[in-house]
Design a binder for these strands. Structure first.
Lengths: 247, 247
DNA sequence: TGACCTGATGTGGTATGACCACACTACTGA
DNA sequence: TCAGTAGTGTGGTCATACCACATCAGGTCA
C-alpha cells in the first residue's frame, strides 16, 4: 500500500527527464563540469542518477541542441561552451513562415552594426584595421561579381563587428548569419540591376573604413545608417518595378 | 557481402536521430506542419519513419528544447512557434562562468535600444506614447524604492522597445531579459548611493519621452547614449570606491 | 626494426516490448 | 441531471540486447 518510497533524498525534485536535465544544468552552472570535460559514460551516469538510458539520452540530446554538450559516437559526451551556431538553428525555425521577418531582421542588423562600429572606433587594433582594409580591397575587386561580391560585403561587415571586441554583439550578429547572407545576396542582385549603385557600394565602405581609422564614432554611425538607408531605397525601388521580387 | 540494403528510397539521408530531426525540420520549414498542429502520436510516427520510439523521442526533446514543439503528457505533441524564452535558457548556459559577460551584454542592450528608440520615433502609436507616459510616471513615483524603481525603469525601456514595432529587436531584447533586470537592479543600487543620480534618472527618462513624442530620432539616440554613459560612469566610480562591488 | 594489420575494449546508437502516468471521453448509475 | 467511473489514447519510463564507431594494444609481415 505504501506508494512513493523515495530511495534517496535528492530524488525529491522532478522525475526522469526533468531530474536529469536539472542535475546536469546545476552541475554546469555551478562549475562542477566545465567546457572540455568528458562526461561520465551514459551507462554509468544513468545508473548513478537512477534513470534509464533512453531518458538520460533525451536529456543529453536536449543539451546538445543548445550546444552545452557535444555527443561523439564512440568517443563520449564532451562539455562545450554554448556557441552561437545553435542560435542559427533557432532563428531558422523562428523565422520560418514569416517572410516579412526577413525585413525586420534588418533592423536588428542595423542596431548591432551601428553599435559595433562605434565600439570599433574605440577598440579596433591594427590587425582589425588591416583585416578591414583587406575586405575593402576585396569589395572593390569583386564589385561586378554578385556571388563573390556578396561574400566580400559580408566579410567587411563581419570584420567590423569583430573589431568591436564585443562577444555579445558578435554572438547576436552571427546568430542572424544565414539571414544576413541572404540580405547581402539580395543587395548584390540590385547592384546588377542598378549600375550606379556600384559606386555607392564602393564609396560607402571606403568611407566607413576611413571613419573607423579616424576613430570618429559619430560620423561612422551616420555613414553606416546612410549606407543602409540607400540599400533600403534601392530595394524599395526594385519592389515597385518588379512586384514579384523579394521585398 | 552486400552491406547497406536500404529498404526505402527516402532513407538515403541520415539514419536514426538525424533522419527524424531532418524530417521534422523539413516538414516545419516547408510549412507542412504549422504552429498549433498536433503531431502524429509517437508510436505511429516512429513506425512511419522506421525508427524506434526512444530515438524519435530524442528528436522531439531536441525540438522541444528550442521551442519548436511542446510535449504535453497525456495530450500529445503540439507544434509551436519558437519563442524567445528558449533563448533565455541558452543565455543562462552561455553566460555561466563568465562574469565579465554581464558587462558586455550591456553593449548589446545599447545597440538594441538605440535602434529601437529611432524606430519608436517613426512608428510609436498613441497607445505606445501613453504606455511610455505611464512608465515615466511610475519611475518618478518609485524613485526612492530600489526594487520597484528598477522594475519601473525596466518597464519604461521595455515599452520603448515595444514601440519600435520590431519583433526581432524585441525578441533579442527579451532574450537578454534576465541579465537586463540585474543590470537595472545594479543601477538602482547606485542611485541609493549617489543621491544626485536620482535627478539624472528622472530627467533622462523625461527627455527620452519628449524626444519620442517629438519624433526626433537623432536627438533621442543621443540622449539615450548619454543616459547609458552616465550610468556607466557611476558604475565605474562605484567600482573604484568599492572594489568588491559588482562592476 | 619498422609499418601495417587486427582484434579487444569502451563508447555512443538503436531496437524492442512492456508497463506506468496523465488527460480526455463516454458510459453508467444514482 | 449530475457525479462518479471505466475505457481509451497519449506521453513517460524502464530493461535488455545488440549494432556501429573510435581507440589502442598487440601481433604480423616486410
Amino acid at each position: 500500500m505504501e506508494k512513493p518510497q523515495i530511495t534517496r533524498p535528492e530524488d525529491a525534485c522532478g522525475k526522469g527527464f526533468d531530474k536529469v536535465f536539472a542535475f546536469l544544468r546545476e552541475q554546469f552552472l555551478a562549475g562542477a563540469i566545465k567546457p572540455g570535460d568528458r562526461l561520465t559514460p551514459e551507462r554509468e551516469l544513468c545508473q548513478r542518477l537512477g534513470v534509464s538510458r533512453p531518458v538520460l539520452r533525451e536529456a543529453l540530446r536536449a543539451l546538445a541542441m543548445i550546444g552545452v554538450v557535444e555527443i561523439l559516437h564512440g568517443v563520449g559526451t564532451i562539455v562545450r561552451r554554448p556557441d552561437v551556431s545553435v542560435l542559427g538553428e533557432f532563428f531558422a525555425f523562428a523565422l520560418a513562415q514569416r517572410a516579412d521577418m526577413t525585413d525586420d531582421v534588418m533592423q536588428a542588423r542595423i542596431a548591432i552594426e551601428c553599435q559595433a562600429i562605434r565600439l570599433a572606433c574605440q577598440r579596433a587594433t591594427l590587425a582589425d584595421i588591416e583585416r578591414l582594409r583587406g575586405a575593402l580591397d576585396h569589395i572593390r575587386s569583386t564589385i561586378d561579381d554578385p556571388t563573390a561580391g556578396a561574400e566580400a560585403d559580408h566579410a567587411f561587415h563581419d570584420a567590423m563587428v569583430r573589431a568591436s571586441k564585443s562577444e555579445t554583439l558578435l554572438c547576436l550578429y552571427q546568430a542572424m548569419g544565414e539571414v544576413l547572407r541572404q540580405s547581402h545576396r539580395d543587395r548584390r542582385d540590385l547592384v546588377r540591376r542598378y549600375g550606379n549603385m556600384k559606386d555607392h557600394v564602393a564609396q560607402d565602405h571606403e568611407r566607413l573604413f576611413q571613419a573607423i581609422v579616424a576613430r570618429d564614432e559619430r560620423n561612422a554611425d551616420d555613414i553606416l545608417r546612410k549606407h543602409f538607408a540607400i540599400g533600403d531605397e534601392y530595394r524599395r525601388r526594385a519592389a515597385l518595378a518588379d512586384p514579384s521580387a523579394p521585398t
